[in-house]
Write a protein that binds this DNA or RNA. Sequence first.
DNA 1: ATTGTAGTTTCACTATTCGGAACCTAAGGG
DNA 2: CCCTTAGGTTCCGAATAGTGAAACTACAAT
Lengths: 269, 269
Amino acid sequence: MQTERKSSGTVGKALSVLDQVASFERPVRFNDILEESPFPKATLYRILQNLVTEGLLTFDREWQTYALGVRLVRLAHSAWTQSSLAPVARPHLTALSEATGETIHLAQLDGPHVLYLDKRDAKRRITMFSEAGKVGPAYCTGVGKAMLAFLPEDELQRILPQQSYHRFTPATICSQQELSSELEQIRQHGFALDREDHEPGIICVAVPVLSRTKQMMGSISITSTSARTSLGKLKKFVPDLQNAASEVATAAEYWRFPDNQRTPEKMEI
Amino acid sequence: MQTERKSSGTVGKALSVLDQVASFERPVRFNDILEESPFPKATLYRILQNLVTEGLLTFDREWQTYALGVRLVRLAHSAWTQSSLAPVARPHLTALSEATGETIHLAQLDGPHVLYLDKRDAKRRITMFSEAGKVGPAYCTGVGKAMLAFLPEDELQRILPQQSYHRFTPATICSQQELSSELEQIRQHGFALDREDHEPGIICVAVPVLSRTKQMMGSISITSTSARTSLGKLKKFVPDLQNAASEVATAAEYWRFPDNQRTPEKMEI
DNA sequence: ATTGTAGTTTCACTATTCGGAACCTAAGGG
DNA sequence: CCCTTAGGTTCCGAATAGTGAAACTACAAT
């Protein structure tokens, strides 16, 4: 589940160490990191020191452990507010959840993975930090497939081989070929289905959020259990979902340039 | 409100640019950044490119703008989960909020600022990503003063001069001297008061979360309005607050080393 | 005393980064 | 149609920062 990025440059190396620390689920000692690090002792040591002085990591002198620093939380707050669909989508997700009584997800792509940015649970109406920020696979979730299907060809070709194609359930799509044809279907229908691909008993419908210029910005899904409902019934919500998605897209574009009605510059190529 | 950090090293420079982009409240063009950047054109350009390839920034080719990347959200999720008090404090905050019917905050220090990590509102029982991650001043908030008071002397001396001492209300503490004596009071009483220091009509009591070794880990507060209650009545909650704080501290320490009862190593010096 | 383990520092070497200047466009003006 | 300006991008020698083997410290166990 570790994102593979070309970690060229000093910043990249630092980031890869940061990711590594993040991948442990609790504070770690120097040696724990060293053991699975590609960097030699001295180099790793210096990188860690840099990260600590930058506030991206904290070092607990008492236990001699490193952990992610809270500075990240502040940056993420800005990221969530300014760069994700989450703030503008918020009311629409709430409305959807109330209208359908089911769980709603908002997701965007982070490299090859799905990153959940918001969630609305019909019962407990609560969005938690601990929900936003979670990652999941793209090739076998409704939100993931909906996004992949509407990605520009070149980006798609870069991302497809990076999927793990792990079989979670008997229904999981486990090859790039199968996925490609599924994506073609999705493109034609305009929505994606999760037929218990990822978790047994969990089904969902998802639609992409597309900008006026057909750029894929994220996706929204309605999730339920096969015990409570069926794919057939879930499909009835597609118009609502599409409606919400297009409203989110409009709101997002309007919000980005509220005081400015100029059209975007012509794209090169 | 920009955190001042010694941005030595390549990573530091990159981070300072990242902070700068974050400080705008919407996507920005190259020149917007350049205008208030200490870096020359070419350097800034390269740094931005690095940040984009690392996924910390996204570049919107359509509008030619930079914005914070969602990768930060993922990292922050780990930070929130693994390094802050938030996950272990969660149930205690809920309990406090239900017992008192008032708003509860959980905060930690991020450099010289207060960083809010969780919030429980008595009415709408909802913790939002948009709340966690917010920053505020330390010298004139309950949570801030409670934390400063229990900071080791050397750290305190580093942080005190970095406060802005801006006068928000007639009751705001506006000098380092006044603050120092207030902190002494707080140390003696064991809790801090916000007497409408920051916002008119808003009052609060706060206590620090202290580890077994008396290290300051964060703080918890109960906030209300002077219209609804008084400082005198809020003080009645101090025992509950202190109780919650010590339970959070214990839970945090237990959680860090669940399978491991060894005592921390002796600190040097 | 001896060996081992975890963490820190040194320093000659090297790869990155720096940034002034030149170079592209595209847009606007005369 | 050429000139100018502004936003953005590329070059390349000089300057800086990063690298990592090895040596060192501190402590614990043998």
